[in-house]
Amino acid sequence: MALRVTFVAAAGSSTVLSERFEDSRPLDQAGWSEVQRVAHELLPLAAADLRYCSPAPRSRATGEGLGYAPLVQLALRDCDMGRWRGLTLGEAMAREPEAVDAWLTDPGSTPHGGESLLDFIGRVGGWLDTRPAEDHCRVVAVAEPSVIRAALVYALKAPPATYWNIDVRSLSTISVAGRPGRWSLRLDSVPAQPLRA
Rank of each mutant, 00 (worst) to 15 (best):
T105K: 06
V140Y: 02
T88I: 06
A197W: 09
L187M: 14
L185M: 07
R169P: 13
A56R: 02
A46C: 02
H40F: 13
T110W: 05
F21T: 02
L87M: 12
Q29T: 11
P145Y: 04
W164K: 01
P107D: 01
A133L: 13
R85Y: 03
V147G: 08
V8L: 05
D135W: 08
L66V: 00
G114M: 06
W164S: 05
F21G: 00
Q36G: 10
A48S: 12
P111Q: 04
S33P: 02
A2T: 14
L156R: 14
A56T: 05
R95C: 11
L76K: 01
L171W: 04
Y163C: 05
L128A: 02
P132Y: 06
D80P: 03
D101C: 10
T173V: 12
V142M: 07
V142H: 06
E134F: 04
W164P: 02
Y163S: 05
Q73P: 02
V38S: 01
D167Y: 15
E98I: 07
L195D: 15
C79K: 11
G12E: 14
L17I: 11
A133S: 15
P132M: 07
R4M: 02
G126L: 01
D188V: 03
V168L: 11
I148G: 05
D101W: 12
P191G: 03
A69E: 11
R186N: 10
D129E: 06
R196D: 08
P145A: 12
R95L: 14
Y68E: 00
L87P: 00
V147C: 08
R95W: 09
G12M: 08
G65V: 01
